[in-house]
Design a protein around this nucleic acid. Structure first.
Lengths: 223, 223
DNA sequence: ATTTAACTTATTGTATACAATATAAAGAAG
DNA sequence: CTTCTTTATATTGTATACAATAAGTTAAAT
């Protein structure tokens, strides 16, 4: 794992909390490499919007306000729904098969939820990402993909108990099927709207929990 | 001018042509700095999508296919139209005044076109960018802005004779006014559609010229 | 006690040397 | 003349040393 992935993982898993400072030498020591590769990683993470410069002394892990989350999810809805509609137009039959496979893997991951541990949740998240990825591949639109990949990272920091709620997961599975059907039938408008609704639902689940101080979010390995 | 801006300028003005190779030492020598800052600039330009790695030996300036241009303009239409609709919702009166000022500056730049030289064209382009920028500021959506800034760079490489055609310029000025009116009247849907049409018009002007081998594009200072 | 000044330190920015390695060139073999 | 093997070279990747400087700290002055 290169320094960029390593630090990104630290942030996404919550081992590095928002507001925490990052120095080149600190991470160089931790990863047993020189400052040069760490510098490079920091620059990339800054471009991702995950860390921000902190008064000319390195960086701090970015904090996301409720408004940030709202804006990022809205952008995601805009971009991914556009992607879904293009997928409906340009998908091949082989790609459609792969989408079905991905969604099936997602369903299986959900079925295993009963024996619930953190690694199962990670599996579910990963399979969900895989399904979405498969859709954007079929658009043959590399530019769209690069923009989507940027808005997908941030929500990962906020992993709510959404992923623990089987009813919500099964509902999202159903929407996946609606999207798939629309792509299969080459109905771009329907695919677009279904995807939009899908993302908005995820957004609202996260926002409700952020606004409810009684329910804790799952930020990080511990707790 | 730092290395990043310097090289970016070389690309956008066409002094560095698509396909041309870039090496760290080459530019370090040219700019009289060490490889370190050049490396950093290259990484940023790669993130911008303006250069791409070339078999582990530095980079080459990216070539954009007609399909690339189409996809990027479509993304721009998607993002900027969304921006325009948010501007209609969230703009303040002060911001509206500034938008009018920017558009007036754009109009004045167009009026000066008769004494046409390259620097006048650059002025027009800049004032046009300023107008669009002013709209996105009023959305208070920093995430949207960062995505838009990425799709705006690439089309600059393809500066067609669009900017020489006074009739087309005056038409774009009229669309600006339509967008402005919608933002003024807080009509998000109308602002969105007008902006969408505006970008599509720009896209088609560029695509027509790319498909017409008789008309040369203006790529670079010379010619 | 509060402000200003001087000093110290942490930390990045840049240059440079050397290591690693993919590519290109040259040479050898069939 | 083509293909494989070896060698050389260009070029990046990484480490490290030093320079620049902002931030923090102490001391002095009002």
């Amino acid at each position: 794992m290169n320094p960029y992935e390593y630090i990104k993982n630290e942030i996404v898993t919550g081992r590095l909390q928002p507001g925490q400072r990052l120095t080149e030498e600190g991470h160089a020591g931790e990863l047993q490499v020189s400052r040069t590769p760490i510098r490079e990683a920091f620059k990339q993470l800054e471009a991702d919007g995950l860390i921000i410069p902190y008064k000319r002394r390195g960086y701090i892990v970015r904090e996301f306000s409720v408004e940030d989350i709202r804006q990022i999810y809205n952008l995601r809805a805009l971009l991914e729904s556009h992607g879904a509609s293009e997928a409906a137009l340009y998908r091949t039959d082989e790609e459609l098969v792969r989408m079905h496979e991905r969604n099936q893997a997602y369903e299986e991951a959900i079925r295993k939820l009963k024996k619930s541990d953190i690694s199962t949740i990670k599996d579910i998240q990963q399979e969900n990402l895989n399904f979405h990825e498969e859709i954007f591949k079929s658009t043959k639109n590399e530019h769209l993909r690069s923009h989507i990949s940027k808005v997908v990272v941030v929500p990962l920091v906020f992993r709510s108990f959404y992923w623990y709620n089987e009813r919500q997961l099964l509902r999202s599975l159903e929407v996946h099927n609606t999207i798939l059907k629309a792509i299969e039938n080459r109905e771009p408008e329907r695919a677009k709207i279904a995807m939009q609704e899908h993302i908005y639902q995820g957004r609202d689940d996260v926002l409700i929990q952020l606004n409810n101080p009684n329910i804790e979010l799952w930020k990080g390995e511990a707790q």
